[in-house]
């Protein structure tokens, strides 16, 4: 099972810093490494959609929410 991370990062970019992608990746880095999953700012920016496993999505979502002090609700 996988899930597109683009809406999550679009939301983060709408309300966060210009470099929020890298901040989220840095915060989630240990989990990404443990899952052997390499994700970069360029990959996020250049792809129209980017599917990742559910557990990776959850880690990225939690990191984004912590950094932005806000809750992510898809579609809003």
């Amino acid at each position: 099972m996988s899930r597109d991370i683009k809406p999550l990062f679009d939301w983060a970019n709408k309300i966060g810093d210009a470099n929020i992608n890298n901040r989220i990746l840095a915060k989630a880095m240990p989990a990404l490494i443990a899952a052997k999953f390499v994700l970069t700012d360029t990959m996020i920016r250049e792809d129209i959609s980017f599917d990742v496993p559910y557990d990776i999505f959850d880690v990225l979502k939690k990191s984004a929410e912590e950094l932005l002090n806000a809750s992510y609700e898809e579609g809003k």
Binding site: A18, N19, N22, R23, L25, A26, M29, P30, L32, I33, V38, T40, D41
Partner: peptide, 20 residues
């Protein structure tokens, strides 16, 4: 420290953040 956690990936990411 970032390199210790994630090797080249960690150091590259650190560099991007430091440049910001």
């Amino acid at each position: 420290a970032m390199s210790d956690v994630a090797g080249e990936y960690g150091e590259t990411l650190a560099g991007e953040l430091l440049m910001e």
